[in-house]
């Protein structure tokens, strides 16, 4: 009886939790079949490289990536991992990316003590495009471009949300009053009933985001020849950001498989031991 109730309650829970999903009136993010989905998912290295290029050429101008180090790019399951360079600090691609990064690292001149900018090394974290929050806001019409280091974990829907957002810009619906600096996006959380002068029962889904549509066809040339459509750029950068949010996730899933198998075996052995101990005892 107790058991049946627990199962019923659990089922009830799932039913009630359902409708409360779409946050703040936005459209539910499109569900993409990422290669890294699921317990056996892995990142596609080519996709990560393309996504990194999109980040480098489009996003890095405004969005910092403060928690990610250059050397992490060369770690196992990362975009530039090379099995000949087990130590990512020796990986020549990673060293070149760091040294060639447009934004340099603030440092102190050891002889004069003056603040200087020096080229990044693999040991550095990605330098931020703006020195502080005030400068970032000043450069973006008062809005603060969020740091992207853990963005896939900081948004409901993760990579699905990021991709949906980047491809979700539409023409402003007639009847929606939006200031010049904000842009309508059906996947961005918000409540548009205040700016909507149309039918009260059909308030458009989504919200107004300060970021203008960042991607355009052909904006980034992919080295592997993949077509540079907005859809492709968006998927690739979303995958890259998902990786950057948790570089160890592939290792986590692989360790998980081994652990689950071992625990299953262990539980079989312990159960057999338990039955043997209790074999002649009434229970």
């Amino acid at each position: 009886m107790l058991r049946k109730t627990l199962v019923l309650a659990a089922a009830l829970g799932l039913v009630i939790a359902g409708p409360a999903m779409a946050s703040g009136g936005a459209l539910h993010p499109k569900e993409i079949n990422w290669t890294f989905n699921g317990p056996l998912g892995k990142f596609d290295q080519a996709q990560l490289q393309r996504g990194f290029k999109v980040y480098q050429e489009v996003c890095a101008a405004c969005h910092s990536m403060r928690q990610l180090s250059f050397r992490t790019l060369g770690e196992k399951s990362g975009p530039f991992y090379d099995e000949h360079y087990k130590n990512p600090n020796d990986n020549p691609y990673v060293k070149a990316i760091a040294a060639g990064w447009a934004q340099q690292v603030p440092d102190i001149d050891s002889e004069t003590g003056d603040p200087v900018l020096r080229p990044a090394t693999t040991a550095d974290r990605f330098p931020a495009p703006y020195p502080n929050e005030a400068a970032a806001r000043a450069g973006n019409g008062g809005a603060l471009p969020p740091d992207l280091s853990v963005i896939a974990k900081a948004r409901h829907g993760g990579a699905d949300y990021i991709h949906s957002l980047l491809t979700g810009y539409r023409a402003t619906p007639a009847g929606l009053k939006a200031p010049e600096t904000l842009h309508y996006n059906a996947y961005f959380p918000g409540d548009l009933s205040g700016s909507w002068s149309g039918d009260k029962h059909h308030v458009p889904a989504g919200g107004l985001i300060a970021m203008p549509p960042p991607l355009a066809p052909g904006k980034v040339t992919f080295d592997d020849g993949a077509p540079s459509t907005v859809e492709q750029q968006s998927r690739d950068v979303a995958a890259f950001l998902a990786w950057a949010s948790e570089p160890k996730q592939t290792e986590r899933k692989q360790t998980g498989l081994a652990v689950m198998i071992y625990l299953l075996l262990l539980s079989v052995l312990v159960y057999a031991s338990y039955r043997r101990v209790w074999r002649n005892e009434s229970h």
């Binding site: 317990p39 986590r252 360790t255 998980g256």
Partner: peptide
């Protein structure tokens, strides 16, 4: 060994549930 082994089995099953969260749905 009676309660010890039964507790051991229960802890193992619990670890399976725990591991599932940690490795596959940590957030």
């Amino acid at each position: 060994p009676y309660a010890t082994v039964k507790d051991g089995f229960a802890v193992t099953l619990f670890m399976l549930l725990f591991a599932f969260f940690v490795f596959y749905m940590p957030n």
